[in-house]
């Protein structure tokens, strides 16, 4: 993360076309943009394309950012739009289940635990992949980025109630699809 004050300076420099400043902004936000893209698309190549498009678009319209909204909210909107644009272009996305996510941030588990975790991840991601785009984006912003209802409402341009409704529908859908994992999770908690 870039501290708020220095981020403002970096954003300002980007608006003047400073390529080094843009690199700094890229470094600060690339993981979150890529993560959203990957969790949404389920495919590393598509996630790379979405991330690239997001940053190219960001650079192109940096001058339009007036600092009235939080920079991060603005960036999230760009990623969300790029995700939806890619979905429209690609008539069918590769299901998440077919893509193994190989770069977890933290991995200090033994191989057996990792294999089990990987299988659970695959199932969770496959279930998420089957959600409609608006529900999937709500889940991704909530659990990949940890956004509050209020922040999500700002990104989507909807009310907090709508965000809550989408998450509720998504949770019910996921609970149904992942019911076979309930026992495993219960045993782990016990």
């Amino acid at each position: 993360m870039v501290a708020a004050e220095s981020e403002r300076e970096v954003v300002e420099a980007c608006r003047r076309g400073d390529r080094d400043a843009f690199r700094a902004l890229f470094v600060a936000h690339k993981d979150r943009v890529y993560s959203i893209a990957l969790r949404f698309s389920g495919d590393e190549a598509t996630a790379m394309d979405i991330t690239q498009d997001t940053f190219v678009k960001l650079f192109a319209c940096m001058a339009e950012f007036r600092g009235e909204a939080k920079f991060e909210s603005w960036l999230y909107r760009l990623v969300v739009n790029c995700c939806l644009d890619h979905r429209r272009k690609a008539r069918r996305l590769v299901p998440l289940a077919e893509s193994e996510i190989r770069r977890p941030f933290l991995s200090a588990e033994n191989p057996a635990a990792q294999a089990e975790r990987s299988e659970t991840s695959r199932r969770v991601q496959a279930a998420v992949a089957r959600l409609s785009p608006d529900l999937r984006l709500a889940i991704v912003l909530r659990y990949t980025e940890g956004l509050s209802y209020e922040e999500m409402a700002e990104v989507f341009g909807v009310s907090k109630g709508t965000v809550a409704s989408r998450l509720s529908r998504a949770h019910k859908n996921l609970a149904r699809r992942l019911s076979h994992l309930a026992k495993d999770w219960e045993m782990k908690d016990a």
Partner: peptide, 29 residues
């Protein structure tokens, strides 16, 4: 619900972007 949320957070967490991304972005710019 609580377990579902915990597991969503655990399995949908952030991932590291590939190092080659900047070259792609720079080339596109």
């Amino acid at each position: 619900r609580s377990r579902l949320e915990q597991n969503l957070a655990a399995h949908l967490g952030m991932v590291r972007a590939p190092d080659s991304l900047w070259e792609r972005v720079e080339a596109a710019l």
